[in-house]
């Protein structure tokens, strides 16, 4: 009796979970089907003929690799810059006393919530005037508008979780402030830094609006707008190819999910949803 109830609950729960995950399963399945199999009625649940031709064509016959490289450079640079600045910035915000510190924390939170459509027009004008339009650098600058407040806000709450006594002990032992930061705070903060870096990377990897407005050449286009362009410009839409592109685009995310998922959920707790 107890077991049947447990079984019923598990079946019910897994039915919902699988329904939520179904679109992603369907993306994977479609990407392995040959084009003609897509039009079969009723649709085949698993690919009847398993093929990697779409992946091959994506890598050899389209601009996908260029977009992928652009996205990788863009997200890595944004993440490194933003996390480095935010780490020392949050250290200052949490552990130092000076005038304007409180209002600065307020501005960080405010910009963390600010819609990008407000900033995009002046940013566009600014970057065009600087002659940076259609470059990866322009996107790094634009992405820092959301990634930096986000990273600061996350790291600030991770930093606040490190006991102040640890630092004081190091100072009493004769360490300088920066020495204590390097030897005591940074090792303690490392999990927080990894969380923040993952979030910053994923946010940059997925960004669409700035890329749409600021970059209009294939040499600097990231994956998001690049893949959407493949959809729009194709004469007849090849869904298998697009699904293969979607899978490839999610590869970094799948890697993060497989190995570093605990850092993602930790970031949630720090990102202002502590109830």
């Amino acid at each position: 009796m107890k077991f049947t109830r447990k079984l019923a609950f598990n079946l019910f729960a897994w039915a919902i979970v699988l329904a939520v995950a179904f679109p992603l399963f369907w993306m994977l399945v479609t990407s392995f089907k040959p084009q003609f199999e897509l039009f079969r009625r009723p649709p085949t649940f698993l690919p009847e003929t398993f093929t990697l031709e779409h992946y091959w064509r994506l890598l050899s016959g389209t601009n996908f690799m260029i977009y992928f490289r652009n996205s990788a450079i863009l997200s890595t640079v944004t993440t490194l810059v933003v996390v480095a600045i935010a780490t020392v910035g949050s250290y200052s915000l949490v552990r130092f006393r000076y005038r304007g510190r409180e209002s600065l924390a307020f501005i960080v939170l405010f910009t963390y919530l600010l819609p990008s459509v407000v900033l995009i027009i002046p940013l566009y004008l600014m970057l065009v005037q600087m002659g940076l339009s259609n470059t990866i650098l322009s996107l790094v600058i634009a992405y820092s508008t959301f990634a930096l407040p986000y990273a600061l806000w996350l790291l600030r709450s991770f930093m606040a979780g490190i006991p102040e006594d640890l630092e004081s002990a190091a100072l009493v032992d004769g360490a300088s402030r920066l020495g204590a930061f390097r030897d005591v705070i940074l090792p303690q903060l490392l999990p927080g830094i990894i969380s923040t870096a993952l979030f910053a990377f994923i946010l940059s990897w997925n960004e669409y609006l700035y890329a749409l407005v600021l970059v209009n050449s294939d040499s600097a286009r990231p994956l998001t707008t690049g893949v959407m362009n493949m959809l729009v410009s194709a004469f007849n839409i090849e869904w298998s190819l697009l699904m293969a592109a979607s899978v490839m685009m999610s590869v970094p995310l799948i890697i993060v999910f497989a190995f570093l998922q605990s850092y993602l959920t930790r970031g949630f707790g720090a990102g202002g949803v502590k109830g």
Binding site: F9, N10, A13, W14, V17, L18, V20, A21, P23, L24, W26, M27, T30, I202, W205, N206, Y208, L223, T224, V227, M228, L231, W239, L242, M243, A245, S246, M249, S250, L253, V256, F257, Q261, L264, T265
Partner: peptide, 29 residues
């Protein structure tokens, strides 16, 4: 529930996937 952490990963995935990917998949559905 059985395989809870797997279930949690599957539920969490849509949130982190790119909007572009989500839209392409749903347009196909």
């Amino acid at each position: 529930m059985w395989f809870r952490s797997l279930a949690r990963s599957l539920i969490l995935f849509p949130y982190f996937v790119s909007t572009v990917v989500a839209v392409l998949v749903w347009k196909w559905l």
